[in-house]
Nucleic acid binder design. Structure first.
Length: 811
RNA sequence: GCCCGAAUGGUGGAAUGGUAUACACGCAACACUUAAAAUGUUGUGAGGUUCUCCUCAUGUGGGUUCGACUCCCACUUCGGGCACCA
């Protein structure tokens, strides 16, 4: 008897598949298309993570099923290869990042192929390939030409000891990861992209796509739309105003002071008038080095400094208000300034701490606390009824808001305004390993774009990969590359030396897969029009607010400037799902330092690729976090062996068992449905149940039924299915067959188990014929000895009947 | 802090208003064997028990319902994201 030998089988079938291009999507096809996308990985030196294996296997199963359903399937893969870890490795070892990238992508590719994933390897893309990033740069030029890219001063993390700019990740507890020095903020001119111009569309168009609800919620929340008003506070003794954005204009009559963020421009503007300037500047300096999350934490003690000598006027009451700065007010949100009153917890606490006067103007609905609110014993933050508010007294917050806005608007002090939490996108990095930004600066003529014919602007070779001690990227040191002639005046000009963030390349990669070799455009429009939008995109929840939002924005932009055809719509992804993480054994994150990293290579070696695939599907619900369990892998290996042995020992006959056929068709139905619902774990258990039934029945399957069984198991354990397909002398490849249809008549039951409940508790189970009506079921149930005993002389109040399921007698 | 998610046997989990604990791991007994491994068979939520029935059990407390792991309200604990990691 032959033994199940995955090592031999798997290598053999991988060679056949990848040699014959069975997984290649067809160009200019008339077939129905299905575009399945997985987030392309960052090819780190650690190799493929078992978490990659899980999500890729899951989508591979869908791709394989869709091919068997007759679709022209595009299931591509590539490398998102620009980024910090590769650069840091280059700095440490002095090896060029492109060499490291080549090594890592080779390893990832080998690992993916060893899992039998059905990627279309003819369409592989790499964001670090100049032929690819030519188009990433081209997109930047379009953004600039359309007024969506601009320069602004933005703070970077600066380590004064290493003299380099740091990524947020390299800042641990406010200190430099390498040397432990306290990190400072340093202002730097950076390229910004106006994603905020698309905020409204990015919210509204979510209604046209099929994303998991939690993904939509996160995106909406990230964009953070709020409707409110912009109010002007006149500065006393000056013609200036301080503008404040608020959603609570109903509380304007209780506003007693104004708070600015420490970085607010007004502080610099009125330096001469501030009596305690030194104190103010010291506070400003201190707050610079605290993160926004830290600043807005509720546990954090509230601090602030008054701008002595400065007062503004409350536009509603005409009263004089002092002006403070406090770090819990953020520069980026609204106008970076708020008016403060007793109806905001932090304003309330701050006023109590510093003895600033407070007033109330909103009465809570709960009258038991109304007095306490009025006496300033507690802070009430909700909506309520207005008082102390002149002609608006007695109105509810909701009624009052629009009325107060128009009243103040008439006086020239307010206007309605929509505000977003979403900020413009900082697009510059002071690093080597990224796409050069294709811009040239001339003292006389300003910023200008590199001409399209000169793209790509290739990354020049450098000797050292560290950022420079001025905070610029190492590109700034290469005079030959930096110094160019201005395109307009032919005078001396300099190239931009910052590079793009990692997100730049991943914004549009789904378009490049469609036509990866095109050197005239991002991709051929006919092909784009056929393939777009992506039918199903799966990725991690951690990418929901950044990559997913950025790439939606960029696609909308490309659509607006007609770089992609109109007919595909302005949303790149029709459906988005997300997978859960795989944790280490015991439920903690896998990490090198904990030594609990599972290497897929080891699992493949010990158990086989099919075992790894099926295990990762069986381990638990796809969208949830699941700990790895080496013991569980064994069960899956036993299952595959069982199938292999049953197939060889039992064989097939012309007319096999009818019971098994019936069970098989139930399994076909379950697996077909559960694949699309991403309930892979229950697919596997139903396949296991069938194998168990087959084994214990000692019956034989018909040849056709066995073929169907191999077909439905093939997306999960493709190598095993192919091998048994061939061993049984079936023609062609198993993965190229059409998916079996469920025989509906066959799975209809003649008899069902009827559950008899008394007062909702199960008291008996009786087998009856299917589709029995209520009256007949009642007779049978009441005839049961057990039930008779239980209801005895009690009065039957009600009988609930669910056909083919249960009968509940209420007494 | 804000946003999102989760909680069911010894363990991973199944059941989305109708038999709670499918499937798998582990454990125990038995069969095969000189023996072991492998494999197979049976059992396995807790407590009680006349051994086939009773009571209890899906993080906690309430509610809706003939019936709730499932829906609603309040809470507890754990995990993830928070804009320069990808």
């Amino acid at each position: 008897m032959k033994k199940y030998n995955p090592k031999k089988i798997e290598a053999k079938w991988q060679k056949k598949w990848y040699g014959s291009k069975v997984f290649s999507a067809q160009y200019s096809s008339r077939k129905r298309k299905f575009y399945l996308l997985v987030e392309f990985p960052y090819p780190s030196g650690d190799g493929l993570h078992v978490g990659h294996c899980r999500s890729y296997t899951a989508l591979d199963i869908i791709a394989r099923k869709k091919r068997m359903d007759g679709y022209n399937v595009l299931f591509p893969i590539g490398w998102d290869a620009f980024g910090l870890p590769t650069e840091n490795y280059a700095i440490k070892k002095g090896v060029h990042p492109s060499i490291v990238t080549k090594k890592n992508t080779d390893n990832f590719r080998r690992q993916m192929k060893s899992l039998g994933l059905s990627f279309d390897w003819t369409r592989e893309v790499n964001t670090t390939d100049p032929k690819y990033y030519k188009w990433t740069q081209w997109i930047f030029l379009q953004l600039f030409k359309n007024g969506l890219a601009y320069k602004a001063k933005i703070a970077i993390n600066w380590c004064p000891s290493c003299k380099i700019g740091l990524a947020n990740e390299e800042v641990v507890d406010g200190k430099c990861e390498r040397c432990g020095t306290k990190v400072e903020k340093k202002d730097k001119e950076q390229w910004m992209i106006k994603i905020t111009e698309y905020a409204e569309r990015l919210i509204n168009d979510l209604s046209s796509v099929d994303y998991l609800e939690k993904i939509k919620i996160q995106q909406k929340d990230w964009i953070g739309k709020s409707e409110g008003a912009l109010i002007k506070f006149q500065v006393e003794g000056a013609s200036e105003f301080i503008e404040v954005f608020t959603t609570r204009i109903d509380t304007i009559f209780s506003g007693t002071y104004v708070i600015l963020s420490p970085g607010h421009a007004f502080v610099d503007k009125c330096k001469d008038k501030i009596e305690n300037l030194e104190e103010v500047l010291a506070y400003k300096e201190k707050s610079k080095n605290i993160s926004d999350i830290e600043r807005t934490k509720e546990e954090k003690e509230i601090t602030g400094v008054q701008l002595k000598g400065i007062f503004v006027q409350n536009p509603a009451t005409g009263e004089k208000m002092p002006v403070w700065i406090a770090d819990f007010v953020l520069e980026q949100y609204g106008t970076g300034a708020v008016f403060a009153d007793a109806h905001d917890k932090r304003d309330f606490d701050m006023a109590k701490k510093y003895g600033i006067p407070l007033r109330t103007s909103i009465e809570p609905g709960d009258s038991s606390v109304a007095d306490k609110v009025k006496n300033l014993e507690i802070c009430f933050e909700g909506d309520g009824k207005l008082y102390n508010s002149m002609q608006f007294n007695g109105l509810t917050s909701d009624q009052a808001r629009p009325m107060i806005i128009s009243w103040l608007k008439a006086k020239g002090f307010a206007e309605p305004k929509t505000s977003y939490k979403l900020r413009d996108w900082v697009f510059s990095r002071q690093h080597y390993w990224g796409e050069p930004i294709p811009m040239i600066f001339c003292e006389k003529c300003g910023w200008q774009t590199v001409e399209e014919k000169d793209l790509p602007v290739e990354l020049p070779k450098v000797k050292k990969y560290e950022p420079t001690d001025t905070g610029e990227s190492p590109l700034a040191l290469i005079q030959r590359w930096v110094n160019v002639k201005c395109l307009k005046c032919k005078g001396n000009a300099k190239r931009e030396t910052d590079t793009m963030p990692n997100w730049a390349g991943s914004n549009w990669y789904y378009l490049r897969y469609i036509d990866p070799k095109n050197n005239k455009a991002l991709a051929d429009k006919k092909e784009v029009s056929y393939w777009m939008p992506v039918d199903w995109y799966n990725g991690g929840m951690e990418h929901t607010t950044l990559h997913l939002l950025y790439s939606r924005f960029i696609f909308k932009f490309l659509w607006d400037v007609k770089a992609v055809p109109k007919n595909v719509g302005s949303e790149p992804y029709r459906k988005r799902t997300s997978h859960g993480m795989i944790l280490g054994e015991g439920g903690v994150k896998m990490s090198k330092s904990k030594g609990n990293v599972v290497n897929p290579d080891d699992v493949v070696k010990q158990f086989g690729a099919d075992t790894l695939r099926v295990y990762e599907m069986f381990v638990g619900p796809f969208d949830q976090m699941i700990p790895w369990d080496t013991k569980g892998v064994i069960g899956v290996r036993r299952f595959l062996e069982k199938i292999y042995n049953l197939a060889s020992d039992r064989g097939t006959v012309m007319n096999g068992s009818r019971d098994l056929k019936k069970h098989l068709h139930k399994t076909i139905k379950k697996v077909s449905e559960d694949i699309l619902a991403m309930k892979f774990n229950t697919c596997v258990s139903s396949l296991m149940e069938f194998a168990n039934a087959w084994q214990s029945s000692e019956d034989t399957l018909s040849r056709n039924d066995f073929a169907d069984f191999l077909k439905i198991i093939s997306p999960f354990a493709p190598h095993l299915a192919e091998e048994l397909w061939q061993n049984s002398d079936f023609k062609g490849l198993c993965c190229m067959q059409s998916w079996p249809k469920t025989n509906k008549k066959l799975i209809e039951e003649e008899k069902v188990l009827l559950i008899i409940q008394v007062n909702g508790k199960v008291r008996d189970k009786i087998e009856v014929r299917a589709n029995m009506i209520k009256e007949d079921a009642e007779k049978i149930a009441l005839g049961s000895e057990k039930i008779k005993l239980l209801i005895a002389e009690k009065e039957i109040k009600k009988i609930i009947f669910v056909q083919n399921k249960l009968l509940n007698i209420v007494v």
